[in-house]
Design a protein around this nucleic acid. Structure first.
Lengths: 251, 251
DNA sequence: TCCTGGAGTTTGTCATGACAAAGTATTGAC
DNA sequence: GTCAATACTTTGTCATGACAAACTCCAGGA
């Protein structure tokens, strides 16, 4: 019960000429120390006041750095006690990225086949999800996504025409989210529903599954920072090849 | 193009005698105004400096209140532009709650049947998920969850014995998370994997589904603020009756 | 022995002041 | 009239100072 938990952080230098905010420099450095295990799980880090003084930054700056890691689930703070390492890895909140990006990052050789691409007036269901008037022109896309040479997912998307016109070539070589971002459209908020159902015979054939095989379903609507609906998607994944991973943290 | 977007917030009073932090009072009041539609979607709110002055609080306090709503997806900020309402409802991040709590909240009359409850040494898979030594004593639970009189989910959980001893009676009438919280154990971080598969004949029978019906699967490990693993769960849900809803926001 | 009270530690909240950076709008030159 | 430079607005970052609240620990009294 003495000072066994008093893991002291090593010197952290800040670069005031850098355009990177100081609080972020401090947070990044702390994160490195924790990920490398130099500050072990369970250890308390230096208190805010001392840490600030040693780094030559103000206490609010130090606080903000620590807060950043608290929100990511690495640290917890207790008033009167201190700040403790609870997990050596960053637990990201659920990410807002496309399947394509995920596969690229996971080195699973994605390929996309565009089955259909047409402009049509939005039916009620889609108009409702996108919060636009029924009949608003949208680009309707059906794509088959392969990974490692095998079909993985059948994807249906609707993108309002005035958000972004899309071509077959773009979609064959890039993820939808990448195309959105490239045009300055950044998804910021999304609502998703994840469920499951059995494959229809057409779906089974397309995905090279048996009829009645279990499929994961995901429908999503994504909005940009301005509150404009960018995309509605209704996808089915081969449950035998794919699952969703989530990291949650509660306030 | 004049000032149509300049929705000004009405007077907001702060109560300095209240134990509720000022930033939270301001945030709550702003949230109310937005939810009631008094500040419409797309409207800009007053700038930080003016708002602070009018409320008689400092700019950091105002900033913190606004930041709180930004993180919840109601507002977005742009440097040089201002702060804009993008959504009239709070978009909560994915919640860390149990199915039981959700059903109670949704008024779906949950009922729980405890099929099995025993203490056993943790097998490798579970020990691994809980990050404890293999063989550590855990309480192993199998429960059948009903909603609206019908079976909804078959739930398997492992709780380390030194975290919390459990009895059959407790579990029949309360959700697992409620029991944890009641004993001062608050889940703070969790990792989940959501997938799907076909029901085995035993599962189908228990859940009154046809053999081969699609089931949603969810495995989860939850940790408390101290980084201690509280619970490992492996559940299957009737896909015909249940799906997961998520709200995401990307920084 | 127990437990109550107070001192000390550490994070939580709040104020004030200052400058930087990123947009927007206006003005002026060509 | 068009375009570029400039002024202005608004949020982003940072410092300093102060007090409050929650927790731990130890000493003293019942």
């Amino acid at each position: 019960m003495t000072s066994e938990l008093q893991g002291r952080v090593r010197p952290v230098e800040v670069d005031r000429t850098s355009p990177v905010p100081l609080y972020f420099q401090v947070a990044t450095r702390l994160q490195e120390l924790i990920e490398k295990g130099e500050i072990g799980v369970g250890a308390r880090i230096e208190n805010e006041v001392d840490l600030a003084e040693r780094l030559g930054v103000s206490r609010p700056t130090t606080r903000r750095a620590i807060q950043y890691l608290v929100e990511r689930g690495m640290l917890i703070r207790k008033r009167g006690v201190g700040t403790q390492v609870v997990h050596p890895k960053v637990r990201r909140p659920v990410e807002l990225s496309s399947l394509y990006d995920d596969l690229v990052a996971g080195d699973r050789a994605p390929r996309t086949e565009v089955l259909r691409l047409e402009v049509m007036p939005a039916p009620d269901l889609i108009a409702n999800a996108l919060e636009v008037a029924p009949g608003t022109p949208v680009t309707w896309i059906e794509r088959l996504r392969y990974a490692g040479g095998e079909p993985l997912a059948l994807m249906h998307n609707a993108i309002p025409l005035d958000v972004l016109p899309l071509t077959q070539d773009d979609l064959a070589t890039h993820g939808l989210y990448e195309l959105l971002r490239r045009n300055g459209l950044t998804p910021r908020i999304a609502t998703q529903v994840i469920g499951a159902r059995s494959a229809t015979s057409a779906e089974a054939k397309t995905l090279t599954e048996k009829r009645g095989a279990s499929l994961l379903t995901m429908t999503r609507t994504a909005w940009d920072a301005g509150g404009r609906a960018l995309e509605y998607g209704s996808h089915v994944y081969r449950a035998s090849r794919y699952s969703f991973e989530l990291n949650l943290s509660a306030g």
